[in-house]
């Protein structure tokens, strides 16, 4: 399968780093929404490029995708995709409690995605002694084939997608989204080195 084969210890270490990053992203989301966000154990899986295309293209007509590029040091870079089901993206307006004329639904979706992505990646980067900068987030047009086109037009060649399944339950509402991190092979190798360095400290 992918180049990202992790040992059991590396997987456990990565999950804990992601867990901490998720916790802080939820905290930001909770503050933004002024409510409590119920957090489940995030599940993580890695998928290769071909698999991801297949999965995403099957769902293509029923979702909204917000895409945002990130860059750190030492070749760590990638693209974060937040994937929402259509019904969930509709709920976000209710959640945010925006007045109808304040911001369009698209803008709200971009807002919330950017909070989740940047908080998550900032905390993750800090834990591996790195620091991220970001491109502006953009909502992909929902027309068919746009997503696969977008994935093919990345400014770098990505070898692996790390899929973090996030489930947020916000008091009366719940919405699911997947955060998918597209990462080039150099970044994967680098992350593995960092995981080994952290594990060596124990």
């Amino acid at each position: 399968m992918s180049e990202f084969h992790l040992t059991e210890d590396q997987q456990d270490c990565l999950e804990e780093l992601i867990n901490i990053a998720m916790g802080q992203a939820s905290d930001q989301l909770a503050r933004y929404l002024d409510t409590f966000v119920y957090l489940k154990v995030p599940s993580i899986e890695s998928v290769d490029a071909k698999e991801l295309m297949q999965t995403l293209s099957q769902q293509e007509n029923t979702m909204a995708v917000v895409s945002q590029g990130f860059f750190g040091y030492e070749g760590i870079r990638g693209e974060a995709l937040l994937v929402y089901q259509e019904e969930d993206s509709g709920r976000i307006a209710d959640l945010l409690g925006y007045e109808p004329d304040e911001l369009s639904q698209d803008e709200q979706l971009i807002d919330i995605s950017s909070i989740l992505t940047t908080t998550f990646l900032n905390v993750f980067a800090r834990q591996i002694d790195n620091q991220m900068s970001y491109n502006a987030p953009k909502l992909l047009p929902s027309a068919k084939d746009n997503l696969s086109e977008h994935l093919q037009q990345m400014p770098f060649s990505w070898d692996l997608a790390l899929k973090v399944n996030i489930n947020y339950q916000v008091t009366d509402y719940s919405f699911n989204c997947n955060m998918i991190l597209l990462i080039p092979e150099t970044a994967i190798t680098n992350i593995k080195h960092v995981l080994d360095r952290i594990l060596a400290e124990f």
Binding site: E16, N19, G23, S26, A30, F36, L39, Q127
Partner: peptide
């Protein structure tokens, strides 16, 4: 000791008898 650092969670665990809430890591 948790990654779920929301203020509401911190006060909830204290109500349930925890001595302290400490952030991960």
């Amino acid at each position: 000791i948790s990654a779920d650092i929301q203020p509401e969670m911190q006060s909830k665990v204290k109500v349930l008898g925890a001595k302290e809430f400490l952030r991960k890591p």
